[in-house]
Structure formats: structure tokens, C-alpha cells
Amino acid sequence: MQPTLPLFYTFNFYVFGIVAIIAAVLFVTRRSPVAAAMWLVTTMFALAALYIMMDAQFIGAIQVLVYAGAIMVVFLFVIMLLNLGQPSDVADARGRGWKLVAAAIGVAMLAQIFALTRAHVQPSIPPGYLARQIEYTGVIAPVAGPLFNEYLLAFEVTSVLLLAAVVGAVVLGRRRTAVEDAADAR
């Protein structure tokens, strides 16, 4: 970590982090699925800003394109397709018992993860190394190098995963034909 960070940087870092948390709280408390999705998009934009501030410009751009763009559009599309836009009063939130259990588990998890983040971290690269690397080679090369060398197998396996997901989504989403229904009835 850099020994002295500009105040402007620190201030903005906190602003985006707090925006992300507030938007996330609003996201889980909204009744309407569309409003919830919009707040989740806000969280993702704030996270993209945090990525960019932490020397991960490429990941920040991908976050906006893939998460805030593609994935959330798919969610909104399904909400629209199933006509779930109205805030439903059909007991969306669970009862008091569930809420107490959820709050207890939440506090316990927060304490655990927070204790973990207090652990001593031994940096394996010198401070500001990533920023200097980006200065020399550009934003994408530091990510692309390991992706196509050390993690090439995982990268290739990812393509199989995506193919399986596409086939699975098509099979699950299609309508059954009359011929199949007749075959099942027999």
C-alpha cells in the first residue's frame, strides 16, 4: 500500500464504498423487484468505481459491461417477462422468526469476516507495484499475461462451462411440444 494517499483519493474511496452499502441495504428492503434491481445496479456501479481506484481498471470496465449491463438486463427482462413489476403484497418478506434468525446469522458472519480482515497481511509485492506495471504496459497486459499463461486451462474450461449453461438454459426455458406431451401420456 502506498505510504501517503491523497486525501481526495481516500475521500472518494469512502464515498463509493458507503454508496455501495446504502444501495445494497435499499436493494434488500425494496418490495418491488424492479426497484430492487435498480438499487443493485447502483451498488455495482459503485463497486466498479472502487475497482478502478484499486488499480483494476479493466475489471471495473468489465463490471459495468457484464454485471451492470448484461446480467442485470437479463434479470429485468425476466421480471418483465413474468409480469412481476408490481410490488407484491403476498408476504414477500418472511416472518419475525426468520428475520431474527437472519439478523443473528448476519451479525455472526459480519463479526467472523471482520475478524478475518484484521489478520496480519504480509504483502508479496512491493507497494505501488501494480500501478507502476500499469504505467509501463497499459491496463490490460498485466491481467492478460497470467490469464493466457498460468490460467490457460481454467480459461478453456470456462468455455465448456458457458456452452453447458447455454444448452441448459435453452432446454429449461423452451416449451414442451405436443408430440412430447403425447409421448409422455402414452
Binding site: 469512502y14 455501495a20 445494497a24 441495504v25 437472519a102 439478523a103 448476519g106 471482520f114
Partner: peptide, 24 residues
């Protein structure tokens, strides 16, 4: 900013867990 980022991450993860447990 490592500690702050990890703090934000922990809070967001917990909000996600609570959401999964409380919404229907």
C-alpha cells in the same frame, strides 16, 4: 485501502446473506 475495502466487502456479503434468508 486494503482494510477499508475488506470492510466494505464484509458488509456487502452480510447484506446479501440476510437478503437470501429474509426474502421470498
Amino acid at each position: 485501502m486494503l482494510a477499508e475495502a475488506l470492510f466494505f466487502s464484509a458488509v456487502l456479503f452480510t447484506i446479501g446473506v440476510v437478503g437470501v434468508l429474509t426474502r421470498r
